[in-house]
Structure formats: structure tokens, C-alpha cells
Write a protein that binds this DNA or RNA. Structure first.
Length: 309
DNA sequence: CTCCAGGGATCAG
DNA sequence: CTGATCCATGGA
């Protein structure tokens, strides 16, 4: 491969690693530090980051480059939004200092729906494995040897038993229902895009296995609605610890507080908090592993900065 | 071995 | 309406 065939894109403030590993997307491979293959729908790309530049590591057509520019949301100005989120909020300031390179991906609707149905009560590495096997068994092979994510038509060939065989467990029933409703038009991407967020959410939740949290993830990552605040166990922990003095708090109150603090950008704020929470937990585990021979008395120091405003 | 995971359906009151 | 329980599976 000659260098002049590769495109390089200047993306100040963007972090490929943070964005890919922030739990929004499930179809990627990490080759080495800052170097990833990413799949979305029938698209595939290999990227590397050095400093503020993103390098396309293979020949890429203009159309493909444009696809990924949109996918990674590179044209949006994030600085002003971050400033707004951090105004009078030291906690968010800290979260942005840890994961401020994250972008909200513009993912394919159907793939996002399937991915987050699988996500329920599941680990991210395992979600990735199931998504990979679904692609290998039902998606169109690409020249690279990877597979496109299957279309609804292709996935219609999969029975509940097939999904279970691929490791989906009790979610197999949810997957066949989602495929059927999308295929029949009972859930329609076009209608979802036209509808206001509340109506779109209600339509998504007609799918068995899609509750509030999964619907919010699909709205945020698959339909570009930033005015949602997907609240999973991590976000609940973070919000309670950081904004409610560690007190147990109901879902409605958490979401009300998120709207009050972060307004129309609370989807992005949620992603910063999610990454911050998981990142600090990984740091804690690393530290605990290192100290496990020295009888350390638990409580390894700073859980998280406690958070008045 | 037990515990838990980017929850939701179902059942019990 | 709220709250407890169950759900498959595999990695820690």
C-alpha cells in the first residue's frame, strides 16, 4: 500500500480509542494502541490515530470517507457543547477531562437496535461476540473476509432457536420479535425519524425486550436523538454518587436531574459519565491487583470525587 | 464455587 | 401502581 492512497483527516479533540471503547458500538477490532478496524452495516474501515490526525489505512473512496466522517460525527463542533455541560459543574469537568475525546456515533438503526437488545443484562465483550456470530452467519461476506451486519430481510431467516444457538440466551425471543416488527413495518425507521422523541420511544418499546433503557440507547446512538439519558446500572451509580450524595434515587428523579443539568445535550453527558465510571473502575481494579499481596485494608483511596455542584 | 453483566418480562401484592 | 424474581451465558 502506498502512502498517497491513504487519506488523513485532521480531527482535533477527537479520540478514536475513547469513542470506540465507550460502549456505543460492538463491531470493531483493536490491532494495537490507537489502531482499529470498525464495521458498520456493510461498511468497513481500518483507522489509526496519531495525535490529532486520523489515518485511513487502506484505499478509501470519497463516498466511504464521507460515510465515516458522518459516522464519527467529525463535522460537529463539540467544544461549545462541552463548555455548556461543564458550566458550574466540577463533576462533569472531571468526566470530560477523562473522556472528552468521545463522539456520539451515528450508527445504523437496525444494527443498533439488535445490539442493544442483546446488551440487556450482558457484558460488553459477550455482546460483541454475539454480534460477530450473527454477522458471520447471516450477513453478506465482504472482500476483507469480514461480514456485513445482516439486513432485516437476511435476519428473517434466523429462528429463535438459531439466535439461542449463537449465544443470545433468553434474548433470542426478543430478537425474532424485533426482526419481525421491523420487517412488517410495525416498527419503521422512516417513521421513527419523523416522529418526535417521545413517540419514537413508544414505538420502539412495542418490541418485546425493548424497555426504557434500550429504547434510549437506540434513540441516541441509532437515531441521533441527544435529548435522552439512557440510565443503566453504571449511570445510576454515577448519578447517585456524584449528584445525590450517594443516596438511592429513583429513575424518574435521576432523569429529571439530568435534564435540568445537561438540557438537550444530556445524551452526550451520559456518555461522558459512563466512560468516566468504567474507566475509574478499571483503574481501581488495576491498583487492587497490584496491591493484593500487601494486606491493604480495602478502600483504595479515591472512589470518585464526591460531588457537590 | 459464586457473582455479575450498558434490563426487561412476569408475577405477587 | 411498585417491588421481587427469573431469565441464559460465560468470564472473573
Amino acid at each position: 500500500m502506498r502512502m498517497e492512497e491513504c487519506k488523513s483527516v485532521f480531527c482535533p479533540g477527537f479520540s478514536l480509542a475513547q469513542t470506540i471503547e465507550s460502549g456505543q458500538c460492538f463491531r470493531w477490532k483493536k490491532w494495537e494502541e490507537g489502531r482499529y478496524t470498525v464495521l458498520s452495516g456493510a461498511h468497513q474501515v481500518m483507522l489509526a490515530q496519531t495525535g490529532d490526525s486520523i489515518l485511513f489505512l487502506e484505499e478509501t473512496t470519497q463516498a466511504e470517507a464521507a460515510y465515516w466522517r458522518n459516522y464519527f460525527d467529525w463535522d460537529r463542533e463539540y467544544d461549545k457543547i462541552k463548555e455548556r455541560l461543564c458550566r458550574r459543574d466540577r463533576v462533569m469537568e472531571k468526566a470530560v477531562s477523562v473522556g472528552g475525546g468521545i463522539r456520539i456515533l451515528r450508527q445504523e438503526f437496525f444494527e443498533t437496535l439488535i445490539g442493544f437488545i442483546i446488551s440487556q443484562n450482558n457484558h460488553i465483550p459477550r455482546i460483541r461476540g454475539i454480534m460477530e456470530r450473527i454477522s458471520q452467519n447471516y450477513g453478506t461476506p465482504l472482500e476483507s473476509g469480514e461480514f456485513a451486519f445482516p439486513t432485516p430481510q437476511q435476519l428473517a431467516a434466523a429462528s429463535e432457536e438459531d439466535f439461542r444457538r449463537l449465544g443470545a440466551g433468553f434474548r433470542a425471543r426478543y430478537l425474532t420479535d424485533a426482526v419481525e416488527k421491523v420487517l412488517s413495518g410495525q416498527v419503521s425507521e422512516e417513521r421513527l425519524r419523523q416522529a418526535d422523541t417521545a413517540a419514537a420511544k413508544a414505538e420502539l418499546m412495542t418490541i418485546c425486550g425493548v424497555g426504557e433503557k434500550v429504547a434510549d440507547c437506540v434513540l441516541l446512538f441509532g437515531l441521533g436523538r441527544w435529548e435522552v439519558f439512557p440510565t443503566d446500572v453504571w449511570i445510576r451509580r454515577m448519578m447517585e454518587q456524584l449528584y445525590f450524595r450517594g443516596k438511592e434515587t429513583g429513575l424518574k428523579e435521576i432523569q429529571k436531574e439530568a435534564e435540568r443539568r445537561f438540557g438537550a445535550y444530556r445524551g452526550l453527558a451520559q456518555q461522558y459519565l459512563f466512560y468516566y465510571g468504567r474507566e475509574s473502575q478499571q483503574e481501581r481494579r488495576k491498583r487492587d491487583d497490584k496491591n493484593k499481596c500487601h494486606a491493604s485494608a480495602g478502600n483504595g483511596g479515591d472512589p470518585l470525587p464526591d460531588g457537590g455542584v
